[in-house]
Amino acid sequence: MSALLQVEGLAKSYGGVHAVRGVSFALDAGTILALIGPNGAGKSTCFNMLNGQIRPNAGSIKLEGQEIVGLPPRAVWRRGVGRTFQITATFPSMTVRENVQVALLSFHHKLWAMVGYAGAAHRPEADRLLALVGMEAQAERPCGELAYGDLKRLELAIALANNPKLLLMDEPTAGMAPKERVDLMRLTAKIAREKGIGVLFTEHDMDVVFEHADAVMVLNRGELIATGTPEQVRRDPQVRAIYLGEGLLYDAKHREGSAA
């Protein structure tokens, strides 16, 4: 069986500077893959190429065997790719539920309907998605006044509206309190495993990475320097030298086997 996502030789350069080069990897349905690396290593560029925001100079991105390079983000979404952003992108002028309803209307190809009240459309489905992320109690609140952690959860609900096969999460826990981080990632992992969704996420918090990822890729200067289980990556001397350092930046329980 071929992988859900198969990336081959992805490359992008800006004005002669290689932001990403020769990145290849595969992701299976129901697994969680983390992409880590120092700032400016090309993680965001990688992500933006995967969902069509940036067009790569070279390489192939296959979703269930179909090429998606060159498609705009909205077409990539139609193929079943959900996405959350590092700095949340939601619709602040709408209520929490309406945010999800718009995504559902789009999924059901109904956004061109000019009659009918959109606030009444797909309500049960929207509420079910909100319940899934634990936001059902806040459905009527204006999205613009949500706490940051709640916005992240709302984004997850929006990203799930098209029954995605693949979920791209760019620093899903950035700016959240430690407990919120753990909760959000547990929730994501649970949903992913239940629904067989492949998840690719970038993250700076090594606790999150080592706790939840099935596999970890390390990007440095645009190139993958290591891929493997969290355990393998943690022990990789090159990764330690370039990124993890002496292991002082994450929990001791993830540090067994390291020199420190």
Binding site: N51, Q53, P72, P73, R74, A75, W77, R78, R83, F85, A89, T90, F91, P92, S93, M94, V102, A103, S106, F107, L111, I158, A159, A161, N162
Partner: peptide, 11 residues
């Protein structure tokens, strides 16, 4: 409201 998000949900 958000070009980024709307493109990311197929609008």
């Amino acid at each position: 409201d958000s070009t980024l998000r709307s493109e990311a949900i197929g609008i």
